[in-house]
Design a protein around this nucleic acid. Sequence first.
DNA 1: TTGATTTAAGATAAACGAGTCTTAAATTGA
DNA 2: TCAATTTAAGACTCGTTTATCTTAAATCAA
Lengths: 148, 148
Amino acid sequence: MLLSKSCEYGLRAALHLASVAPGTYVPIRDVSTALGIPYHFLAKIAQAMIQQKILASTRGPHGGVRLARAADQITLNAIVLALDGPAIFEECVLGLPGCGTQQPCPLHDQWAPARERVRAMFVETTLDELATRIQTQGFRLADLTSTP
Amino acid sequence: MLLSKSCEYGLRAALHLASVAPGTYVPIRDVSTALGIPYHFLAKIAQAMIQQKILASTRGPHGGVRLARAADQITLNAIVLALDGPAIFEECVLGLPGCGTQQPCPLHDQWAPARERVRAMFVETTLDELATRIQTQGFRLADLTSTP
DNA sequence: TTGATTTAAGATAAACGAGTCTTAAATTGA
DNA sequence: TCAATTTAAGACTCGTTTATCTTAAATCAA
């Protein structure tokens, strides 16, 4: 698994907010049921995203969470960094500390560009782009196999 | 972390066998100390690789493990599949079951080729190629930061 | 045969990620 | 004010991965 479950859930939640109700507060409970993500777990992930300024929140009735910035100002990379940190874009594929151009492992020259391509995908993609796809092309954010 | 610790250790052990003593049995203890991998853990990983026909072993004095085939006949992909399974080459980046060309998630079109490139790196690289690099160019398989 | 060496196998423990539960605090509307 | 709603925060449980420990079995050499 490239991303942690927390990160997968966080990305899907952010995409949901960007595509379903841009700008308005949505209760975490609603996001949880819409995407099939355990509520208490998602609440904890949302807290982290709020602290990292990815989301904003208000409590009480009509409260919930929303994107902290416009959807075209939030890259997938920002969310991955907030929840999983930079490790996946920096780590040696063989787990060797300090692997880099100075002290490369035997796979470094092949791994570094492949890893960079994955990183570029996250850096160059904004929530806005994907939200558009979800709305215009019907791409999915939830597991359809369990709710046919 | 793309690969599990088991898989990282297994790849490094296989590369060590391919570069240090091709064809001869090396005690797991020796591999363990050479690469800085916990002995009992590596022994268990070796067992799995033996069952998957990546390694062969004999017990007793002058026993140990060696590659089951010639180093140019073993791809990195074979070792990754044996220890981590095919999941990393098949999974949806957002963790959605059944994500594919039929039911794509919003990221699928960008993720699938990036993932395929990573897979190609493992499929197209043999232990022999990397062993050559290790010998001719001094690439490393162990953590040099702890033993300066 | 005996003892040293080494893998084989399984029990056990520690660390971490994933998920659950409970209580507190804030906000809103009646 | 009061009650309902909702996030905030932390403790807790569970399962897997990672790591350690112990014992058994096989092999070889003297």
